[in-house]
């Protein structure tokens, strides 16, 4: 040690004990730093929760949740359906925190939300008063290749069990390209109503569910913050912001017109000629028709 000269004048045992004290302190401090690094890294590692593990309703964002949850398990105790589980050491979820796996036991969405009420710290946010506002995750129809409805079958189970049927999941009709003559009923999730309860994933009849609840940040995209939907901006402004609107004009056969308010193509029944076909026997007349009006 390069101590300045006044220190060196001290008697030998004194400096020896001083040295010993310094070495001991350095050793302890070193061990504590090692310990802190170990625990810090491990806690960071264990915070990477798998996508299937969902937090109870009202849970704060994951990084805040791990500072707010005291691992007491009171939410687990007050869950009347044994949905919630407290992560044990060795589980892939941070030890002692509550979670559920939708495919095993989904959330029954109790009206009085007992798990949130039981939370003493507010890790489950007490401002959640209506269970329909919970966002435990978001259902995603993840496997279109195996979903029976996508093949044109009327399974509909996920749609039928949804507590917010026709709001969180709707069936959208599309034509069945495989058979060429039927419809397919596509189960479609709407994030403004889906609470992530997991009933659809639980009920999916496949070996492995085609519809799954994912954590919101995994399930949802996010628009570039500079990006604007043109038609919404147009509604807001009352008119087009870029180029002036010019109504498209269709060049239609006689007896037909186009309704721009959504009705589309209209055949006028009682027009003068009232022939079976709007086309003249002379194809030249048909071609000239619009031009005559313009002139």
């Amino acid at each position: 040690m390069n101590t300045p000269s006044p220190e060196k004048k001290r008697s030998a045992p004194n400096s020896a004990s001083r040295r010993r004290f310094l070495v001991d302190t350095a050793r302890t401090a070193g061990s504590i730093v090692l310990f802190s690094l170990g625990v810090g890294l491990y806690s960071r590692q264990s915070a990477s929760t798998p996508a299937q593990a969902l937090r109870p309703p009202g849970a704060l964002d994951e990084d805040k949740f791990l500072g707010a949850c005291v691992r007491c398990g009171l939410c687990v105790r007050d869950c009347p359906f044994d949905t919630l589980d407290l992560a044990k050491l060795g589980d892939p979820v941070t030890t002692g925190t509550p979670y559920f796996i939708a495919r095993d036991v989904p959330c029954e969405m109790c009206d009085d939300i007992p798990c949130v009420k039981a939370c003493p710290t507010g890790a489950l946010d007490h401002s959640l008063e209506n269970i329909d506002d919970a966002r435990m995750g978001l259902a995603v129809l993840i496997d279109e290749e195996n979903c029976l409805n996508f093949q044109g079958l009327r399974c509909d189970v996920c749609y039928r069990v949804c507590p917010a049927i026709d709001k969180a999941i709707t069936l959208e009709l599309e034509s069945n390209m495989r058979s060429g003559k039927h419809a397919v009923f596509i189960p479609t999730v709407h994030s403004d109503h889906c609470t992530g309860c997991g009933k659809c994933e639980r009920a999916c009849v496949l070996e492995e569910a085609a519809i799954k609840i994912l954590p919101i940040q995994l399930a949802k995209g996010e628009l570039g913050h500079h990006y604007r939907w043109g038609w919404k901006e147009k509604d807001k402004a009352g008119s087009s912001l870029v180029t002036p609107d010019v109504q498209h004009r269709y060049n239609l056969p006689q007896g037909q017109r186009y309704d721009y308010d959504g009705k589309g193509l209209i055949f006028d029944e009682n027009n003068g000629s009232s022939s079976e076909t709007p086309f003249d026997s002379n194809p030249l007349n048909t071609l000239k028709r619009g031009m005559e009006q313009d002139q």
Binding site: V39, S43, K64, L66, G67, C69, R71, G96
Partner: peptide, 15 residues
């Protein structure tokens, strides 16, 4: 206590 501050979580409870 320093770990709680630096990780923003109750890191000690993991061990």
């Amino acid at each position: 206590l320093v770990l709680a501050l630096s990780t923003g979580s109750i890191a000690w409870e993991t061990v």
